[in-house]
């Protein structure tokens, strides 16, 4: 009994370290990707001085954030001001733990499922975490005791709760088809190129748009819209506290991209891989690689859209959420219900 419990603990720890490391590494290098891609889109060079092709730039930035003076303005409400970056950062990391990044891998004589936590309500857990993230932003805005910050915080909470509905509804179709809230079963349902993206395109569209709004990314980055609100809810933040807001944004992006892949693009499935006769270990590794590749594509999409589309106005944002995405997502739910009833799916 004793060794198996110990090996379970070690297994979980390794997985936690792997996933958190992956997300944090992704966060670090997404800042570099963002700046380089932005530069390419705007026809300039971007950061290319630190290391080969600027690859050490994120590390230099991190060090700079650590050594900067941490200014706490005198007019803020300190407990919440300090709490807010943590409150936004922790849920953004927790959300990524339920995403299956591979089927299972056969190592040391046992099958290890490739996800940190296999909750039977996986998808709801991610929604719960994104709901918790709202408080970080709202409290940051309120505690900063500054008009711009408060407006940023208010806007962001309004935006998040509006788009959460559309996002939740757009996923319902997928869950109905798969018949489970477990993300792994959603992925298994899509085996053999039976991806939800083909059967539920409206749901995919709603989900992607809502995910952009949920992560506060352009064209929906109203909460930190610099032309109106200085820097929105993080106007008063400096050094590592500011960095935590940024890291949370990128971590949320990674979770959202991974979720898009998991729900609509077959997760770790590679079509036709079962026909090729490969060793189980190679299959597992290819699947993990496929998952990371698909996720990377959607991360690139996030960056691509940000530097291509102009920002929405706030009333347009609300109209889009409530009057376009919400009914569309409902339509998808009905269509999926009909499909299941008629036996098409």
């Amino acid at each position: 009994m004793e060794p198996s419990v110990l090996s379970l603990i070690i297994e979980s720890l390794v997985k936690v370290v792997f996933v958190i490391g992956l997300v944090m590494g992704g966060v670090t290098y997404m800042t570099w990707v963002e700046r380089r891609v932005a530069a390419i889109i705007q026809d300039r060079l971007g950061p290319n001085r630190v290391g080969i092709a600027g690859l050490l730039q994120p590390i230099a930035d991190g060090l700079k954030f650590l050594f900067k003076e941490d200014v706490i303005p005198p007019h803020v409400y300190k407990p919440f001001y300090i709490l807010a970056p943590t409150l936004i950062f922790i849920p953004s990391l927790l959300g990524s733990t339920v995403i299956p990044f591979g089927d299972s891998i056969h190592l040391f004589g046992r099958d290890i499922p490739l996800r940190v936590a296999d909750l039977n309500v996986g998808i709801l857990f991610i929604f719960a975490m994104s709901a918790m993230g709202v408080y970080g932003i709202a409290l940051a805005g309120w505690a900063s005791n500054n008009k711009f910050s408060l407006m940023g915080g208010l806007r962001s909470s309004a935006q998040l709760i509006s788009y959460e509905l559309a996002m939740g509804l757009s996923v319902v179709g997928v869950l109905m088809a798969a018949g489970s809230l477990r993300l792994n079963e959603v992925v298994e349902y899509q085996s053999g190129f039976h991806w939800n993206a083909f059967t539920q395109p409206i749901g995919l569209l709603c989900f992607v748009v809502a995910a952009f709004a949920e992560t506060n990314r352009a064209p929906f980055d109203l909460p930190e819209c610099e032309s109106e609100l200085v820097a929105g809810y993080h106007t008063e933040y400096s050094s590592m506290k500011f960095a935590m807001f940024m890291m949370a944004e990128y971590a949320n992006m990674i979770t959202a991209a991974a979720l898009m892949v998991t729900l609509f693009f077959g997760g770790w499935q590679v079509p036709g891989l079962s026909k090729a006769s490969l060793s189980p270990l190679a299959v597992s590794l290819i699947q993990v690689g496929a998952f990371l590749f698909k996720t990377a594509f959607f991360l690139f999409l996030f960056v691509w859209v940000r530097w291509t589309l102009p920002r929405f106005r706030f009333d347009q944002l609300m109209d889009l959420g409530w009057k376009a995405l919400f009914p569309l997502a409902l339509l998808q739910v009905f269509a999926t219900g009909l499909g299941i009833l008629k036996g098409w799916l």
């Binding site: 909750l119 039977n120 309500v121 709801l124 929604f127 719960a128 918790m132 709202v134 959460e164 809230l181």
Partner: peptide, 15 residues
């Protein structure tokens, strides 16, 4: 009760 846990977070603590 994982479902109740998630719903409690989303509906009460969240929305």
């Amino acid at each position: 009760a994982q479902f109740l846990f998630a719903i409690q977070l989303i509906v009460y603590a969240g929305a």
